[in-house]
């Protein structure tokens, strides 16, 4: 189980701190696949990355990340090394380029495992079973990344990332570079991995909320560095309480169409810049139901079991 408390991460820039993630508090249960959604620049990538890979210009400000009862030293790149891969793992956005182009894939995996003091030969049978599972030939291990198609690389990276059965898997925009049918296959694989116990909790970062409808157990919506709402997937789609979530769902075409624009069609205005954001709820400039209370930051409260929301209108 993943517990995140008050996690605050800023970007250090020449002009000061960009407040990309502000006091995030939530949990992801064992076996839960949580979607993390929002426009680009809302802080969802910052949140995902800071759990596994917090490095400059990202700056740790405060907060705790606890995985299976053990606190992760996320502010310390060196001490985190031990936890990466074994406990927290990542399927990166750039899966197409994630493999060293001049190493055969099997050799790369062997060198990676050996550098973590594990024996490749002991893990090899399990590796082969998993390749079978994602319908990759064992020959892949003898190939260079350039010999693989995009979909094959994606699946290879998924197998590599989950090989050590991490408690938490972060999948970062893994579908954005793929066509619709491959997207579906990749999503089903994530569910399969969870069902087979390869990973306990999964966080899927995406700007494509319609993808989440099919596979996520719950969805966490972020806006401008703040958590807006977290609830079971059904609830988010049927009974969202945060006006931003409502507009996000409302703006969604029926199936499959994605919004890639910085600016969301259907929601007028744009997110505030995070260098020196206005106090209070950051959505209030675009919010149709904003009132004077919104100059205070609304707390992220549980209004019904498993349904958290940060909006003064929702409590």
């Amino acid at each position: 189980m993943l517990q995140v408390e008050n996690l605050t991460v800023y970007y250090k820039t020449l002009r000061g701190y960009v407040r990309a993630l502000e006091r995030a508090t939530f949990t992801v249960a064992d076996g839960e696949i949580m979607g993390l959604a929002g426009e680009s620049g809302c802080g969802k990538t910052t949140l995902g990355h800071s759990i596994i890979y917090l490095r400059p210009p990202m700056n740790y400000i405060e907060g705790r990340v606890v995985l299976d009862g053990q606190e992760l030293p996320i502010w310390d790149m060196e001490r985190m090394r031990e936890f990466r891969y074994r406990h927290v793992s990542l399927i990166p956005q750039y899966a197409m380029n994630a493999l060293n182009p001049t190493r055969k894939i099997g050799k790369m995996i062997a060198e990676l495992l050996e550098s973590r003091e594990m024996n490749y030969d002991e893990i090899l049978p399990e590796l082969k079973r998993r390749l079978d599972l994602v319908q990759l030939s064992h020959d892949v291990l003898k190939m260079y990344p350039i010999e693989l198609s995009g979909g094959m690389k994606q699946r290879t990276v998924m197998v590599v990332s989950t090989l050590l059965n991490p408690s938490l898997l972060i999948a970062d925009e893994i579908t954005s570079a793929l066509d619709v049918s491959t997207q579906k296959a990749v999503c089903e694989m994530l569910v399969e991995f969870r069902d087979r116990g390869f990973v306990k909790s999964t966080i899927i970062i995406t700007h494509d909320i319609s993808i989440l409808y099919q596979i996520a157990d719950s969805i966490l919506v972020m806006y401008a560095g703040q958590l807006s709402e977290k609830a079971p997937t059904e609830t988010i789609f049927r009974d969202a309480r945060h006006p931003y979530t409502q507009m996000l769902i409302g703006s969604l075409p029926k199936v499959g169409v994605r919004y890639q624009e910085e600016r969301l069609r259907g929601i007028p205005g744009s997110p505030p810049q995070l260098l020196d954001p206005p106090p209070g709820c950051r959505f209030r400039d675009r919010c149709p139901v904003a009132f004077d209370r919104c100059v205070e930051v609304p707390p992220f409260l549980e209004i019904s079991p498993g349904h958290f929301v940060a909006c003064w209108r929702a409590y």
Binding site: R81, Y85, L90, Y94, A98, T102, S115, S161
Partner: peptide, 21 residues
């Protein structure tokens, strides 16, 4: 700074391996 280096780092590979690659 290349993607493959960042991936290895995310998987906890030591600096030695990343630098060698």
């Amino acid at each position: 700074e290349a993607d493959y280096s960042r991936y290895l780092e995310a998987l906890g590979a030591p600096q030695g391996l990343i630098r060698r690659y």
